[in-house]
Computed example of a mutant assay.
Amino acid sequence: MRMRTVEISVGAFIVAGILALVMVALRVSGLTISAADNDYRLIAHFSNVGGLGLRAKVSMSGVAIGKVVAIEYDRDAYDAKVTMEISGYYDNIPYDSTASILTSGLLGEQYVGISVGGDSEYLADGDEFEDTQSAMVLEELIGKFLLNSVE
């Protein structure tokens, strides 16, 4: 009887460990088990997205407010169309706000930063940012620096 209790205890410990690993993996990857119903999507067009990837964070004043859910090439505008999913809690982003692709650290990950505007109207589901700033590509900066120093 004592051996059976030990086996059940070990089995419960292993199941708890596996559940903990799954939770850590979901937290690190940015995935969620359930989607919030009040999230909304905003669109921004950039001439160069650099190394921006899916599930990259969207932040405003340094606070993560959403994530990038799609990056695709717009054949009509000849630029990149970035679709962002913003938490419904942050439904007061002014219409004249600016979306920029920023880098955390010198060679860190890229994310979308929103600079708040001053308009009294707010962006709603499906709206597009009028003003955007593309990513600064390190290779282009180095090339410009080298060309200027040679001339």
Rank of each mutant, 00 (worst) to 15 (best):
E121Y: 14
S97N: 11
G113F: 04
V15R: 11
E7P: 00
I33N: 05
R55K: 11
V22M: 06
G62Y: 01
S149W: 07
H45M: 13
D76N: 14
A64Y: 02
S97P: 03
L26K: 09
G113Y: 08
I93V: 11
K67S: 07
Y122K: 05
I93H: 01
T103M: 05
D127Q: 07
L19N: 09
E72Y: 10
D96G: 03
R27F: 10
R27W: 09
D37S: 15
D79Y: 07
V63W: 10
V6M: 01
I142S: 06
L147I: 05
D76M: 07
D125W: 05
S104M: 02
Y90K: 04
D125C: 01
L123D: 02
F13R: 14
R75N: 12
A16N: 10
V6F: 08
E109Y: 08
A16F: 04
S97G: 07
F145E: 06
K67L: 03
Y95C: 00
D119H: 15
M3Y: 11
K144P: 07
K144M: 14
S115P: 00
G51H: 06
R2E: 11
G30C: 06
D37Y: 06
G62N: 01
S87E: 12
V137C: 01
N48D: 15
G126Y: 08
N92W: 07
G113K: 00
Y95A: 13
E128V: 06
V58S: 00
